[in-house]
Design a protein around this nucleic acid. Structure first.
Lengths: 81, 81
DNA sequence: CAATAATTTACGTTGAAGCGTAATTCACTT
DNA sequence: AAGTGAATTACGCTTCAACGTAAATTATTG
């Protein structure tokens, strides 16, 4: 179970998992975001060309938000920001 | 100090803060990512049209990664994924 | 295994990101 | 206040995401 994401593939996979955890289809996300099902599919499959607006809309529909964290996870956040 | 981001504005602001915390200019990020300074500027100013590839490249340059978290922060992650 | 639902892919169209280049505006230091 | 560096904005150009629509492929269920 990988909640971290540093690539479009990891991000798409995390979103897909969050969606399925809610028992939702891509069509459900589509209805809640006014994005096409094909767009959701593209995002979940790791298309790095996806727009930030698209990603944010899907995450909002899923009740998710970003956390910016230093890579590796061992460094204290306070040391970075 | 807000590390969470659910909008392009918040994301851009977080990135700008992380960059300045390292004492870097947009030009430094530009050199490390082969992205134009104007593109970095656009991202930091909250342009939701920014491509995921751009965002990921900048975050990589800053040594940052995403964490997908439920909104609000009070819900257990296990309840979501 | 059929049905049925869900996901992926296709095609033409439109709008805009990011590019190169450069100018302009803003911030900081002396 | 002047000078230097940083950030923002501009313009023409190319590329491609997301659109509408629809077909094809892939689960999923009876």
């Amino acid at each position: 179970m990988d909640l971290s994401a540093r690539t479009a593939e990891q991000l798409g996979e995390a979103i897909r998992r969050a969606r399925k955890a809610r028992g939702w289809t891509q069509g459900d996300i589509s209805a809640r975001t006014n994005l096409r099902v094909a767009t959701i599919s593209s995002l979940e499959n790791g298309d790095a060309g996806t727009k930030l607006a698209t990603l944010l809309a899907v995450m909002a529909a899923l009740g998710l938000e970003f956390r910016l964290a230093p890579r590796g996870g061992s460094v204290e956040i306070e040391d970075i920001f």
